[in-house]
Amino acid sequence: MTNEKRAWGVYVHIPYCVKKCAYCDFVSASMGTETVREQEQYAAALRAEIRHAAPPLFTRWGSAATAYFGGGTPTALPAHLLTGIISALREAAGIPEEMTVEANPGTVDEAYFRQLRAAGANRISLGVQSFDDALLRRIGRIHTAAEARAAFRAARAADFTNISLDLMYGLPGQTLVDVRESVCAALALAPEHISVYGLTVEEGTPFAAAEAAGRLELPTEETAEEMYDYLVAELPARGYLRYEISNFARPGYESRHNLGYWRSVPYLGVGAGAHGYIDNVRWENERDAAAYIRRVTAGEDVRRAEDGARTQTAAMEEYAFLALRTAAGIDEADFRRAWGTPFEAVYGAALPPLVARGLLRRADGFTALTPRGMKFGNEVFAEFLLY
């Protein structure tokens, strides 16, 4: 262990939602009348975990560079609980240069945002998904398009100068016209960052049950492809550069925290169901919020799924998959520094066919997906498996 300064991040998981969306398989649960007391206990447990786990990393590497509050819905917590967690993080991990809080438009107002800003948050990620009220109801969102616009303006009024909007495509009953209208509505607000996600029907969700029963009317593959093609052409044309498969930003407003994931930067995960990655070891915390609270209160370790130090082969595969998600791609010199072997020596045989098919480009010491490669990324990733 050294005291050399190194970039690292903190991910904080808040597993509460006002209502769980029909497509969501994240660690989260809808709130009931009994949840208020549990939220207080959960916030106390989170503060305790942060105060235990973050100081050794602060001593080792200095202040965390980034922090990200995700969920669930972080803003489902009362503001004083969320800002208390932020304060504990700043005390234990230092003051991150970028601190993002995910927010549901149906849970926030200007007063809430002002409290977050005063506590040290400087980036907001609004889960809008669509500006079509009928679609929002269909997927289980609690907000309307008008409330999404109001939430964005409230964040601006509270002095947030870095705001991201999430949009989705491929939703049940959604058309290309719907996607175009939502993009136009998002662009009219002029956010700094836009994320776009295609719907994936995850096992165990209401959408999966509806699909199994033949009641989920999804767009055809052709229509979903048209939506994708429109998004990846329109957003860059409007000044939002694509820096990762699903993420677009004005220059200088890329999510530093998420870039850390894709560049294999270490991060501490705290909270129920949070994942972390330190010293080539990945883990997942206890997923059940009540059990998480009990274990933290009892002074027990909440990391329930450490995979141990992985083989170099598995680590190289993961490094390649994550880096290829970014527009920059794999830095071949960094690959050699990380693994002690030339990139060509590991993947040389796989590269020429992918370049010939127009899926990869190689230049200036980087190997990256082409626009076509981003569209068919799974085909490329399969060729980066090491058997």
Results as ranks from 00 to 15, higher is better:
His257Trp: 10
Cys24Gln: 11
Gly365Gln: 09
Pro56Thr: 06
Ser28Thr: 11
Leu324Ser: 06
Phe26Asp: 05
Leu82Tyr: 02
Arg303Leu: 00
Tyr319His: 10
Cys17Pro: 15
Glu244Lys: 07
Ala249Asn: 11
Glu110Ala: 08
Ala48His: 12
Glu254Ile: 10
Leu199Pro: 03
Asp133Gly: 02
Ala157Trp: 00
Ala150Ile: 00
Arg6Glu: 12
Gln312Ala: 12
Glu226His: 14
Leu89His: 10
Tyr23Thr: 04
Phe343Ala: 01
Ser63Met: 07
Val10Gln: 07
Thr144Trp: 06
Thr144Ser: 15
Thr73Val: 07
Arg60Gln: 15
Ala22Phe: 15
Val27Tyr: 15
Glu306Met: 14
Gly239Arg: 11
Arg180Val: 12
Thr2Asn: 07
Ala338His: 09
Gly9Met: 08
Ile95His: 12
Arg37Trp: 06
Gly260Met: 03
Ile163Met: 10
Phe26Tyr: 12
Tyr347Gly: 01
Asn258Leu: 05
Ala103Ile: 01
Thr35Lys: 02
Ala208Gln: 11
Gln115Ala: 10
Arg114Lys: 05
Val196Gly: 05
Val196Phe: 11
Asp132Ile: 03
Glu234Arg: 15
Tyr230Asp: 01
Arg337Glu: 11
Arg117Trp: 01
Ser87Pro: 02
His275Ala: 15
Tyr387Val: 08
Val265Gly: 10
Ala333Tyr: 01
Leu167Asn: 10
Ile142Pro: 05
Ser264Thr: 13
Tyr42Met: 05
Phe26Gly: 03
Ala224Gln: 10
Arg137Lys: 13
Ile139Gly: 03
Tyr68Glu: 05
Thr35Met: 04
Asn247Lys: 05
Asn280Gly: 12
Arg60Gly: 02
Pro56Arg: 02
